[in-house]
Write a protein that binds this DNA or RNA. Structure first.
Lengths: 199, 199
DNA sequence: CAGATGACAGATATTGAAATCTGTCAGTTG
DNA sequence: CAACTGACAGATTTCAATATCTGTCATCTG
């Protein structure tokens, strides 16, 4: 495993670098090969097409967020708290990415725009995590939900303003935090079981 | 008021026509003037810039939907029913526009993308209509809402999947209807006052 | 012989010169 | 004289020639 061995890992790292430097429009497979000191033919030995290479980089980027959210799902918290926690972790992760390095975020926004299958898989994973949280809430009687996956999907779509990159420009507005709280509260209230007798 | 008189109305009608024919990228002020049989200088007498002309056409397009929704606000229905009615009217209006004439819809999507002030005013009008409906619900005890405008905004944002043009491609999917129902039910449940004692 | 190369064809992107458009305004017209 | 015109400067777009890129594959190398 000498550092000179050409592996998918090394190619992906180089591709990230090239994308960071050149942006999504000008990043070419030839650039990636040059950065690695190999011919572009060698890159094509590991990734069938440029789209596949971009898809793999995109998946990597999205998986980092998925992993952090999985920790929240596994945490020991009341479901309603966990749901808020999960949604705010997702929002904060995106908001920081967009705010800290807008260019890189724009680059990955372009990539997600062209990698529909990768994004669909990512969304499926996220809604699956949401379903797990809702399931926990139903199990302990805190949530009242008839169709679990449909509701998970609805929660995800209802909060799209705070995780879909198309809304990134709005995340830096001063009222983004309150707006997020308002939507999350609305959604949580729509899920928790009614508590009769509370004045 | 002979038909030859050049009025803002006639210019807007001609602009709509040119946009329909040529699309947003190729529709020029010269085209509009030619369609009206005048010089382009005359068009500039009524609209200071091309952007202002496009903004006026965009406003007109958006106002048609606003007017239909205002009828729903004025209707005599229980607030929860009216809210569902209003949201589904908005969704159906958009879905039909997008489905019936995709090219024209794409044209207006481009226009709304560049006319931020017009769109902001449109959104302000829609949330104001929503606020009115929520207000009615609070007045008759059916809704339990603390911050009326913030909740109206939250309802609007939570249902963005079904009125924001960026999601138009998803509106023709077979599960769009059920997905809409799921989100609306979630939102309505999050607003209606708890009814203790219902088994 | 597994892995890497680089020449190649067709597709895509870049470039810069020419054409068109936007917005203005002095002058024309009814 | 109020409404319209059309020539104009600067900005933007078009177009075609040129360069670069993508993906393949026969060939090479350790």
């Amino acid at each position: 495993m000498a550092p000179e061995t050409l592996t998918p890992e090394r190619i992906l790292a180089a591709t990230e670098d090239v994308l960071r430097r050149h942006g999504p429009a000008k990043a070419t497979v030839v650039d990636v090969a040059r950065a690695l000191g190999v011919s572009h033919g060698s890159v094509y030995r590991h990734f069938r097409t440029k789209a596949a290479l971009r898809g793999a980089v995109t998946k990597r980027w999205l998986d980092r967020t998925t992993a952090r959210l999985a920790e929240v799902v596994a945490a020991d918290e009341p479901p309603a708290v966990k749901l808020r926690h999960w949604l705010s972790t997702l929002f904060e992760a995106k908001r920081h990415k967009a705010g800290d390095d807008p260019e890189l975020f724009a680059t990955y926004s372009v990539l997600t725009g062209e990698q529909n299958d990768v994004v669909d898989a990512h969304i499926a994973e996220l809604t699956s995590q949401l379903t797990a949280i809702l399931q926990q809430g139903v199990a302990c009687g805190e949530f009242d939900i008839s169709d679990l996956p449909a509701t998970a999907r609805a929660v995800f779509e209802a909060t799209a303003h705070f995780h879909d990159p198309v809304y990134a420009p709005e995340w830096s507005r001063p009222d983004a935090g309150p707006a997020f709280d308002a939507v999350v509260s609305l959604v949580v209230r729509g899920i928790v079981a009614c508590r009769p007798g509370v004045s």
